[in-house]
Amino acid sequence: MHSLFTRINNVSALLSSCVMSLVIAITLASLLQEAIFPPQVDGQISMRATMVYQAKAYRQKRKQEMGFLNFNMTADLSPLFTWNTKQLFVSLEAEYENIKGVNNTIVLWDRIVRRPEDAKVNVVGARNKYAFKEVGGKGFGKGVAGNASYALKYNLMPYMGVLRYGEVTRLSNVPFEVREEL
């Protein structure tokens, strides 16, 4: 039968299977390209110490120990921009273990990069965008290692396909400096 309905049915079935195979091909090609030519990114973080003061956090009534950063950071993330890169989520994360045996990872600074022209990160004297505080309220600097490491990481979002994660660079053994007054 060649009624209008069967024609519409056939055309839409063909169209949807074409689109499906195109989507799969794009996803696989993108992954394959990354496997064959792994993007080379590098960067550097520098900071002296994490300063800890008694301060009031947003929504909090009482003062508590809060960490304050002052860091410089350079990185070149332009190799991550390929034909299937929609955006990068770039974040600076603190990693440390506290005295109660809790492993903490906290995003303290982030940036969304949408164009390869903006993929060169160069921040000087930057501060943390988000509050750096302990789960229990205090205990900074009394941790097992007594220091934190800072890592610059990215999350690559494609126009279509699988999300990827990676680490650009890392600065280890940054001590906490606890001060009583601001």
């Binding site: 109660k100 045996g101 809790v102 492993n103 903490n104 990872t105 906290i106 789960v135």
Partner: peptide, 9 residues
Amino acid sequence: VMETHDVSS
């Protein structure tokens, strides 16, 4: 996810 706190004890 912006913060993770893994309990070990």
